[in-house]
């Protein structure tokens, strides 16, 4: 028993379902970002603004060790070094750490630093008011530059986290990629 109308309806509905699932594939991208932000996965760090920063209370009884790490992605001819190996910090207080970056070749290059924190749970509590990773960095041929990051670690950071590592990887910026090719 052939239901012609039914065939039409089924086909339309299933085509719609196909389109919805195609959209769902793309929706996974923002969903993933939200999920990572909430859970602190990926080690992406947060930002702190003045209004919030003025309300911070310093916990001077507790010390947390923060270690600084640096990496360069394969297709970027830069050198990156943390000027301090580690800092012992009080939660709730602002500190400044510096890095030195140097362009090793005779070409102007735009780079972008991407931060990452381990243990991942700590990334929820590391907040920056200023960071060289907030924008692209341009280095002229052979240029050497000091980069700064101003951060605080929240008082709520779990008690069992006694030390954490903040790592930066410099990539060739995408815009620059295009210019190069």
């Amino acid at each position: 028993m052939i239901k012609i109308g039914g065939i039409k309806r089924t086909t339309v509905l299933l085509t719609l379902l196909t389109l919805v699932m195609f959209g769902f594939g793309y929706a996974l991208v923002p969903l993933y970002d939200v999920f990572c932000e909430v859970t602190g996965l990926n080690g992406k760090t947060g930002r702190i603004y003045n209004a919030e920063a003025s309300k911070l209370v310093i916990d001077d009884q507790r010390f947390v060790t923060i270690q600084f790490d640096s990496n360069i992605n394969g297709n970027l001819a830069w050198k990156l070094k943390a000027d301090q190996k580690f800092l012992k910090v009080n939660p709730g207080k602002f500190y400044v750490a510096t890095y030195t970056v140097e362009n090793m070749i005779n070409e102007e290059i735009v780079g972008q630093a991407i931060p990452s924190v381990t243990p991942q749970i700590a990334s929820l509590y590391l907040k920056k008011s200023e960071c060289f990773c907030f924008r692209n960095q341009v280095l002229k041929p052979g240029e050497k530059k000091k980069l700064t990051v101003r951060f605080e670690i929240d008082r709520d950071i779990p008690k069992n986290v006694e030390s954490l590592t903040l790592s930066y990887t410099f990539f060739r910026a995408l815009k620059d990629n295009k210019r190069a090719s």
Binding site: L14, L17, T18, L19, M21, F22, G23, F24, G25, Y26, L28, V29, L174, K175, N177, K178
Partner: peptide, 23 residues
């Protein structure tokens, strides 16, 4: 119907990442 469109989306993202500057 539920899974192939998701693959189509994923490979389209690869394509735009390589040629159209998305990331």
């Amino acid at each position: 119907i539920a899974s192939m469109p998701v693959l189509a989306g994923a490979v389209t993202m690869l394509l735009t990442d390589k040629y159209f500057g998305t990331s």
